[in-house]
Design a protein around this nucleic acid. Structure first.
Lengths: 359, 359
DNA sequence: TTGTAGGCGTTATCAC
DNA sequence: GTGATAACGCCTACAA
């Protein structure tokens, strides 16, 4: 393989100096269109492409964006990452991904590594790091940065968030509108910020309807409780049991579905915050408040590119709303209501699990 | 922010020349432990870190790996990506991801971009590009490369594949062992290679059991047919209908589940190639042949790092096997068998969808 | 064992 | 408008 042609080669071939070539590439003005033409032909002929490494060394910033996220394996972040990558590439920038892991130290180390590599900009899903105290050279006066999905602690910077509180408030109100007053909240230990906002939305919706908040209706799936399934069972067997569940993220939703199925409880309403792969394929399909990870990614990249190009306006805070999709599970009415209606009848048929082996 | 310290600064502070410092960093031998100690203290004091961009320019290779994949949004590739990123980072390398899109041109362009950036190595999920003809400077004598999930066309290089044929053969044999002889094959249009091998496994298993292959039992979910649900319905309403389904990838599995649910067909056995999020939560849980994307990623990175460190042995071909998980749906026996058994009885109860609204 | 010179490919600076 | 020259921060080669 003959080594890649350099500015020198192009200059030699077109009979001008390397500076002229450089100018043709970067600042087409300042150069006669005649010579520019010659240079461009030489570039074409040699198949010349500027060496990004050399350019980066000179300019001091790598032609790449850094994406810091807890785990790319998560379907939500994977979808976001895909969108970021596409947007970045369209702008001629590579995307370097780095998982921050679960410790603040790791998060910090990863960001420092990326900064040390002189990335042009950073998209961060902040986790546990106290950005306000760290005083990293990011944001205004430093490397452009946009925070996604969660706000950085004690730091004013561009952020792209989902309106968690609103989404859950609406979802909860939806259940209330269908007659429920005993609504369980199913969450997970992780994802502090989002979950907290969602929890607030839940509480607020209850408050709006004059329903008293009952802590015994809150279920938390932690990695520990995952192995001890009956988390939901408790709230379904209270003296005044839950008739509906609001699950606050994908993992919680899957756990709830699993439990409801194994209990063969067909009478419990469910609304999930976060859509998931087969929500539509369940019986009934699961009503969800859907976030749009791709839109988050695109929005964040858009903001970041603006900053990279010199935008110095005050930090922006984008709040994306969720899409509410009624699909069936959220429109189930509480048993008590049904009971009252059909009290004269012979009672409800026993629920039978679908697709149980027939023998 | 004071600019990052350079070799010069460290040299000045420790009273030696730049080269000595460089040697302490790269080749600790060749230098007196006394001066090395001084240098190291200076490095510590200044918080010096070598500038990766400058180093890359000099050495000619970026301290980063490139990952080329159709779409990172796919849960399978997302899990793989996560593993690659972790392994790469452990080796001190960044990971640049680039989605190849669906056209060979894009795939080629992406790889050339990465090469032009002098990545140290490449992990590629090859799609449509004819690698044999392209003669890219990769593999032996070029930039180290490992292909994952699919082999490159007409090129001898390191590959990490899943034993698709074996996995499906076993899965199909499993269904046959449970009495099925009319087994549908549900696939998708995409993923040529893997799906073809899986299809072969299906055919081979039928052949092993002396069952004739029937093309009318093959269902293909393409982006078009996705909107026209009754794909599976056909094979379930043949004069001699399917009693079991083998779905050949996650997307097909979800479509099959969706259709079976909407048809309330509880009597159809199902084995899925590829595990998916709530396979365990369905009723019955779905029996699967599970691939391990993380293992694939780790293995690929391991091979790649060996190459980067100078391994010039002949190309390796790693074939990972799948894990078969019996969970229920694959152990359903065909209706005909059940019918024979219970012919004296009153017949089977009508299947009732689980979680249907009780009112 | 350590230091000096040179250059990797590019862009900034300042002449012409 | 165009061209020499000097960095950017590091490493390879050779000299001391």
């Amino acid at each position: 393989m003959t080594p890649n042609p350099t500015l020198r080669d192009v200059a030699l071939l077109s009979g001008v100096s390397i500076m002229t070539v450089s100018r043709v590439i970067n600042a087409e003005w300042e150069v006669t269109s005649a010579t520019a033409q010659r240079v461009r032909e030489a570039i074409e002929a040699l198949g010349y492409r500027p060496n990004p490494l050399a350019r980066s060394l000179r300019t001091g910033h790598d032609e790449a964006l850094g994406l810091v996220v807890e785990t790319i394996g998560d379907p939500f972040f994977a979808a976001m990452t895909e969108a970021v990558e596409e947007s970045a590439r369209k702008a001629g920038l590579f995307l370097i991904i780095a998982s921050a892991g679960k410790s603040p130290e790791e998060e910090r180390a990863v960001i420092l590594d990326l900064l040390h590599r002189s990335v042009s900009g950073l998209i961060i899903v902040p986790c546990l790091l106290a950005y306000g105290k760290e005083r990293l050279p990011i944001g205004a006066g430093g490397v452009p940065v946009v925070f996604v999905d969660r706000p950085p602690i004690d730091l004013e910077a561009d952020t792209v968030l989902v309106h968690n509180e609103d989404g859950v408030r609406h979802a909860t109100a939806h259940l209330i509108a269908h007659g429920h007053r005993r609504i369980a909240f199913a969450g997970t230990g992780i994802e502090r910020f989002s979950l907290q906002r969602r929890f607030e939305g839940y509480c607020n919706a209850l408050g709006d309807a004059g329903i008293e908040y009952d802590p015994s209706l809150v279920v938390s799936y932690t990695p520990d409780t995952r192995d001890h399934p009956p988390a939901l069972t408790k709230v379904l067997t209270l003296r005044d049991p839950a008739t509906a569940v609001l699950s606050a993220n994908e993992m919680a939703s899957l756990e709830v579905v699993r439990e409801l199925h194994s209990l063969a409880r067909t009478d419990i309403a469910l609304v999930s915050f976060d859509d998931f792969a087969i929500a539509e394929s369940l019986t009934p399909p699961v009503t969800v408040a859907r976030q749009d990870p791709a839109l988050m990614g695109r929005t964040a990249t858009y903001l970041l590119l603006r900053r990279i190009r010199g935008d110095t306006s005050p930090p922006r805070h984008v709040l994306l709303s969720t899409t509410f999709l009624e699909r069936g599970s959220g429109e189930i009415e509480p048993r008590s209501t049904s009971d009252l209606r059909s009290q004269a009848g012979t009672g409800l048929p026993q629920p039978v699990p679908v697709r149980a082996p027939p023998n």
